[in-house]
Every structure is written in structure tokens, then in C-alpha cells.
Design a protein around this nucleic acid. Structure first.
Lengths: 224, 224
DNA sequence: ATTATAAGCGTAATAACAACACTTGTCAAT
DNA sequence: ATTGACAAGTGTTGTTATTACGCTTATAAT
């Protein structure tokens, strides 16, 4: 191997996704457990090495499918992590994504070739992860908080109808703060992402809540 | 080479920077001309392959220095481009940056090992570029337009003092629109990025303009 | 019927943004 | 020295978005 080879060769690309869900007001992230070196036994975010014959997002989705069985998840790119020493084997640059899914609707979290396990962790109870995945997770959560304000990224949690108080609880779990009921309603309705179904849901000893659904069309917001 | 090798091996990382300047109300981007295959003779953005022993931004700055002689430029990461066929030689993923520099202060744009030339192109007169650099440039310009609103990315164009009308002309060139003089002043002063020097500049047969400078400290804006 | 609970609805105060008109300091022409 | 042209400086008003907060209403349990 000559000098130039040492400079350029043996590089690779990771595609990493932080998959979130919300259960009973707790925001959780999906982690898998490695059963090979490096980081054998460590929990990490779902992801792996990009193949040469696939685009970035394609690769990220394949890795999700392989490691967790989850298909048809919508994911959003948000950052790149490339510190020289982030992988001990060879020089890897990680292209990272976020996604949201309803944990109750996930098929099965099965044992795979390279991971022995998969589980949901509350975001404030995440153990030290392999690679630089703690760092990636921090940024991923920030990105998720940004995204929910004006996108339909939460649609997967509410594929059918839902009430605004239900939706608000998820927002509060992700943002980590309480929101005003009346202002939340006003904001959501003005964003034009959801629509009234005309139906109401009744349970418990309370006033029935109106049922909404996410609209089909997504309209992009202008920067100026 | 076995199947696994074909999937994973021979990947690399590009670090690409779109360097902008503004001259007489015209936004321009710095391009260099390739003198090797692939894309021999084509203009491209500054950049190249990342070395194994450098972090991403470090690599981007090294490439800028090597290809144009520019040092001490501040750059900002903004996106990743990884289409399977974006490079004809091997699988390359491009991590991209933007930067701004005063073309009048650039040392020299010299012939280099792998580029024969470097020149500033008005952004609406950019030729078809090598690789996917036209695509990258489009996104880079969008990012620049976002960044100038609330960062000191333009500081390099105004290392000393400047008047608000001067600054406004640069904003208008980059945004491609006219701005209201009074609202622009109000906005800039409220952003807390610049400060009054107490001095005025007099030239031409007009009212002297107050002189401002960028503040030393940069304060981050909160998301919420 | 009464009460507790959480949903729905409305309004006032404030802050951010957009639109717009007049005054002022300099040079050049007279 | 007066006047005109020019671009810089400044202030006000209307609109829209955000925040804060109070009252009413539908249900189940008693």
C-alpha cells in the first residue's frame, strides 16, 4: 500500500437511523444489541454499512428492515458524523436519519445475523451506546423536535383518527414540555395538516373528543 | 473479490464546498477546472476526497486551500449527496459545505496539481458542472440564503466597518430580491449581530452613512 | 340532581412583520 | 448662497402570529 492508498483507501459509509416511538407519554428510541466485534454486546441505533448498489435512504431502510423487521417506515435525513476515530475498524462516515413508528404496530423484533436483540428505550434511560451513537441520538432528538412542528412525521403514530388531546400528549412527550390546550388546537388547525372527521370518540367520564385525521396532501412551507 | 466485497468495498467520501462572493450586486461562486479524468476539462466546485487522518471539515478546508490557495475560510456543513452513480470511478458520498469570502481579498487563484484554473461565476451563468455539482450548488445557494438571515456568515465580506446600505445590497444580491430599507435596518439592529462604531463615511454627493461592524460574540438562537 | 373531569371555545395583550412618507446631509449646478 | 438631486436616516400604522388566560359543556360516577 503506497502513501496515497493510506490516505484514501478503506473508507466506508454508515447509514444510521434513530427510530422513535411514544408510549404513555414516554418518548422511546429503538436500539439493537450487537453480537459481533466491534462493540460486541453494546446497544446501538439501527443501521450499518451502505451497499454500493443502493442510494443512501434505500440503504438506511434496508438496514432497518434487516435489523428489526420494520418495513415501510418514512425516514428523514438530518446530519453527518465523520470524526476520524468514530469507528475502530476503518474510516466510516455516518449519514443519519430519524423516523417515527408506532411500537404497537411493529411486526416483530427478531434476532438477526448481526444483532441479538432489539428493544425500546426511554430517551432518558439510554445506556452508553457503541460507536458515536449517543452523540447521533442527541442530534436526532433535536431534529425530531424541529420536524414535528410542521411536518406529518407523526402520521405513523396516528394512521387512523385521533383527538387533539391525544396528539398533544405526544407533542408534549417529544418536546419535553407542557403545551397550552387552546393554543395547541389553534396552531394545529391553522397548519392545515389535519382535518375534522365529524365524528367523536367517547370513553371515560369525560366530554367526548372530536376525531381528526392527517390530510393526504402535504404542502411545503415557503422559506420566504 | 467475493460478494461481500462487491457490496462494501471501494467507497469514498468527497468533501465539497460552494464558496460564494458578492461583487457589485452579483452573487458569484468559485469554480475550478479539472485537468484529469473523470470530468477532464469540466468546471466543478472546490473539493475532493477526504483523507483518512482528517475530520470532515478539516478535509474540506484542506481541499479549498489546495485547489484555490484560500486559507482561514469559515465553512458550514449543509447536506449529503450520495446517488449511486454520482461518481463514475467508484462509490463516493459527498459531504457538502458553504462558505463566503471577499474575492478582492483572495490571495491568488493558482494552478494546482489537479485543477488548471479557478474563477468566479455569477450564479445564473454557471456552466454544466462535473459530477452532481450543479445539484449541490442549487442546495448550497438555498442554504446560504437561510444562513445570512441569522448568522455572521457575511462577516468575511465586511471584516472592517460598513454601512447598512452596503450590507443591504449584499443581502439583496444573495436573496435575489429587493428589501425595504427601513425594515432591513430595524431587523439587523434587533438581531444583535452588529454594532455602531460612532463613525460615518462620506463620499459622493450623498448623506454620509453610519459605520457599523460585526460584533465579536456570536449568540446562538434558541429553537424554542 | 350533583360533582368531578377533561374537552371545547373565545378574547385580550403582546410581539413580529410589512407597508409606507417624510426629513436630513452632502455635492454640483446655477 | 441658493437650489436641486440623491441617497441616507428615522417614525408610524396596520396586519399577523404568538402567548396567556377564563369560561362553558358533555360525559360517567355518585
Amino acid at each position: 500500500m503506497n502513501v496515497k492508498d493510506k490516505l484514501y483507501k478503506n473508507q466506508g459509509i454508515h447509514v444510521i437511523t434513530a427510530i422513535f416511538t411514544v408510549e404513555q407519554g414516554i418518548t422511546k428510541v429503538l436500539l439493537v444489541k450487537r453480537k459481533n466485534e466491534p462493540f460486541l454486546g453494546d446497544w446501538i441505533l439501527t443501521g450499518g454499512a451502505l451497499y454500493n448498489n443502493e442510494d443512501l435512504m434505500e440503504g438506511a431502510k434496508r438496514e432497518i428492515s434487516e435489523k428489526t423487521g420494520i418495513k415501510n417506515i418514512e425516514i428523514y435525513q438530518f446530519g453527518v458524523f465523520g470524526r476520524v476515530d468514530r469507528s475502530p475498524i476503518m474510516r466510516m462516515v455516518a449519514v443519519s436519519y430519524i423516523g417515527v413508528i408506532d411500537s404497537k404496530r411493529v411486526e416483530v423484533l427478531r434476532e438477526t445475523l448481526r444483532t441479538s436483540n432489539a428493544d425500546w428505550f426511554p430517551i432518558d434511560k439510554v445506556p452508553p451506546l457503541g460507536y458515536d451513537h449517543n452523540e447521533i441520538l442527541v442530534e436526532a432528538l433535536k431534529e425530531l423536535q424541529k420536524k414535528i412542528v410542521s411536518s406529518t412525521i407523526l402520521k405513523s403514530l396516528f394512521p387512523g383518527v385521533f383527538s387533539l388531546p391525544e396528539l398533544q400528549k405526544v407533542y408534549e412527550a417529544i418536546l419535553g414540555m407542557k403545551l397550552d390546550r387552546r393554543n395547541f388546537r389553534k396552531k394545529m388547525l391553522s397548519l392545515d395538516l389535519i382535518e375534522d372527521t365529524g365524528e367523536t370518540a367517547k370513553f371515560e367520564g369525560k366530554k367526548p373528543a372530536k376525531q381528526y385525521r392527517f390530510k393526504k396532501k402535504i404542502e411545503e412551507k415557503k422559506v420566504f
